[in-house]
Design a binder for these strands. Structure first.
Lengths: 196, 196
DNA sequence: CACATTCTGGACCGTATGTTCAAAACGGCG
DNA sequence: CGCCGTTTTGAACATACGGTCCAGAATGTG
């Protein structure tokens, strides 16, 4: 019934994400979104309500991706948990994309003025924190981290470092410096293990 | 010669900073800046050229402040360097101001589209990194940190953690969690000292 | 006091913005 | 085929925006 849509909503969301990620929310006009997605303004409004609705959809999808990433990092042998953490930090450290992560950029720009964005961001961070704690607990069970250490705090250190590396990357700090930071953080977490 | 200015430029810059910090660059209109500073648009344009000029001035001043903070953190007994670092992180961790730091917010919003902002931000981070490394070196000389450790990397850990705590704060992560992260990071850095 | 110079407030301008709308286009269904 | 509900399109709209302009106010100088 009715005329079918000519576009794939997920593709549109991805295209819009790219645009928002590059120029932010207030820095992006609906015309630019229209160009980036290939949809006319009318279709955009028909599908997403308004500019904020589109952003919310983009942001929600992105956060769902970070939730998923946190879960996937928990999969694998427990004695490699720290290696997975290291890989995660190193990947962030290596990135030279100045646009960076939409969660960081969106939170920085909108959290203080948009409660929905703030709430979604907070939920994303809660999930990330839980995932990081899980990684530490795996490493503790595998004897790679002092079992007496505060897993929540060390997990927080992991997440904080990842967010910090993201910030440094956006500011153009040299990737080799960031890699050294990533390694030093993981080494510090591992150094608390009983045998070392 | 000529009519004297009725306003104090520094006060105007501070007021404009508050506004930019709250609503970002693209999210702030010149009318809002006019209201926030108490200056009419004509005076604002006369004094700062245009909106971007005002932002640049605000951003430069803010970065000069962070430069100064980095330097002041180096002052004091070397065997208390790590305590000063801890205080710095704890202060960031405790902050409940959702607007956060203008260096972080400005870099996130504008670094990828405004070379001048990107350059100033990069310089600020370079200075911060050097200051953090200095703190670690002081702690090393005082025997509080393993003298064989890479001071640049550990300094980087310090800065990265501070930036990450800032990001977590903006996302509304509980201050007690952030405090535990700050302490765990400092403890990790201190744990590498030879005697402990 | 008159002049030159600078600053102030706010009206004004052209444009870009977010949003709406009516009509045309389309495909499923009887 | 013709109807119906939906989507598409692009023009149109009101407003908000960044920026300009100028008449007048305020000062130091001769």
């Amino acid at each position: 019934m009715g005329r079918p849509r000519k576009f794939d909503e997920r593709e549109v969301v991805v295209a819009a994400r790219r645009q928002f990620n590059e120029t932010g929310f207030h820095g992006t006009s609906v015309d630019e979104l229209s160009r980036a997605t290939g949809l006319s303004k009318g279709s955009l409004y028909g599908a997403f309500g308004d500019k904020e609705g589109l952003f919310r959809r983009v942001f929600d999808d992105y956060c769902a991706g970070t939730d998923e990433g946190a879960a996937s990092r928990l999969e694998g042998p427990e004695d490699e948990a720290l290696d997975r953490a290291r890989d995660w930090l190193r990947t962030t450290a290596r990135s030279t994309d100045p646009r960076g992560c939409l969660l960081a950029k969106g939170t920085a720009e909108l959290a203080s003025e948009n409660p929905a964005v703030a709430a979604r961001a907070n939920a994303a961070y809660t999930t990330l924190l839980a995932g990081c704690r899980g990684l530490i607990e795996q490493a503790q069970r595998a004897g790679r981290v002092d079992p007496g250490a505060d897993a929540a705090a060390l997990g927080g250190v992991l997440l904080t470092t990842q967010r910090g590396l993201e910030a440094l990357g956006r500011a153009g700090v040299d990737p080799s410096v960031r890699l050294a930071i990533a390694d030093a953080t993981i080494d510090g977490i591992a150094a608390s293990r009983p045998s070392g």
